[in-house]
Design a binder for these strands. Structure first.
Lengths: 243, 243
DNA sequence: CGTAAAATTGAGCTGTCTCAATCAATGTGG
DNA sequence: CCACATTGATTGAGACAGCTCAATTTTACG
């Protein structure tokens, strides 16, 4: 059984991008939003729920508002004409589906749910207006951008120049790092909803090969995945691989 | 001999990012810059020249101004601890070394010259101030961002899910497209300063394998590289491969 | 409980790499 | 402007990381 410590503390609105960007406060000050309880109870009607492992938005979706993931995981995906797919990024709770939606209507990438969860739609015009209220907000928006690009550049380097084992190790570490900022992860393991096919699509590998790699990791006592939980047994080894 | 038609028309300042972003006009209006002649003759002293195939900026360089390439090609590179390198992007004349330098001092990527050329330093504070003069300027800046990320996402997909032949075809087409926006490319071929090792570092392949691929292309009558010039003989075939 | 989805395992196979040798191009100093 | 030194390109042989196909077992879920 996965230890579900992560359902605690910091879930809900408290780690939402809107707060990270300082947007929530501004929206509230402007009277466009009411403050939300951490458990999100009062805003349920504003949320859209999604099921696990289902398409969330198709590639050609036209957005007239900006969705933010309140709960659950999703993936940004680029589809090839030959049926191949590449996962560009995983979106965790509190993250905007894509920052570019603040200024553009189309994404040209499809979004797929990984777990079940929910998102909230923010009005684009309002958000944009809020951005212009304070100049420092722009710096924060741009910072978010640079972080995203940093991640993209890292991925490029991973796919271009690292072996399968290294790529998987890095993905696991990356997710572990991001998750520890959201939750208090117990050493015993944490919820890990990715299927091997997600790992494959994110690392440019084959599901079969990912299975082999993970089994190698298990044999080496580095990492263990079972019951939808990931346990890192030897962080040092994993880090060394991911260098 | 390469046909050097591309030295004509649109070189110099006329296709500079500063214009693309509308920055040049604003800087001039603010009295911070004087309009430049297209041949760039009057601003020579403000330019820094660089030699071909030499490091331009190391990974840890601290920038206190924003360099813009006036002439020549450069590459943005991520270096691995094991000596491997991944080219993230090629910078063509008129492009900023990196947009993030508008808001950050460090790049964490090294820059290398490909051809010889020159760049100009713009004052960061002035540029930022100029950005705040008009809100529409921000949209243009953000648009530049999204284009860059679009390119990055494409590269991720290429490296993750396409074969060597496809990657090279796409790189050549991409460069051809970008260059045709800068110059009037003759059908006879155009200046192409990349060494095979650049192609390899950009596509995540080996120089030896790139050589094989290009030789395949040659045998198929698709493209031809000689004398530092690239000639596309069968655009349709190339496009089909790059789909 | 039964069916569908996911993971494992094994046997080949191929795209891409490494190593190495040779040849061509480019740049440099005298 | 030539001779040499360096860097880049080509080619071939062999190796291996990662793929495909396929069969089986395990897990998830209505």
């Amino acid at each position: 059984m996965p230890s579900t410590t992560q359902k605690t503390a910091k879930s809900g609105c408290s780690n939402c991008v809107m707060r990270g960007l300082g947007l929530c406060r501004v929206l509230i000050d402007l009277g466009w939003e009411k403050p939300h309880a951490n458990d999100g109870s009062e805003i349920t009607q504003a949320r859209a729920v999604f099921a696990a492992r289902r398409p969330l938005f198709p590639e050609d979706e036209v957005f007239d508002s900006v969705p933010v993931i309140c709960d659950g995981w999703a993936a940004t995906i680029m589809n090839l004409s030959n049926g191949g797919r590449q996962i560009l990024s995983f979106r965790l709770p509190g993250e905007m589906i894509d920052t570019s939606l603040l200024f553009e209507q189309q994404l040209r990438r499809s979004i797929e749910a990984i777990t079940r969860g929910c998102y909230r739609n923010f009005d684009r015009a309002q958000l944009r207006a809020a951005l212009f209220v304070s100049p420092s907000m722009f710096d924060r928006l741009l910072l978010t951008h640079y972080n995203e690009r940093q991640r993209a550049d890292q991925l490029i380097t991973d796919l271009g120049r690292r072996t399968g084992h290294e790529r998987v190790a890095r993905l696991l570490l990356d997710l572990w790092t991001r998750l520890s900022k959201l939750y208090d992860l117990s050493d015993a393991g944490f919820d890990f909803p990715l299927r091997q096919i997600h790992i494959a699509d994110a690392t440019g590998l084959t599901p079969v090969y990912v299975s082999n790699i993970l089994s190698d990791f298990r044999k080496n006592g580095m990492v263990e995945i079972s019951d939808r939980a990931l346990k890192i047994n030897d962080l040092t080894k994993l880090r060394r691989l991911a260098t």
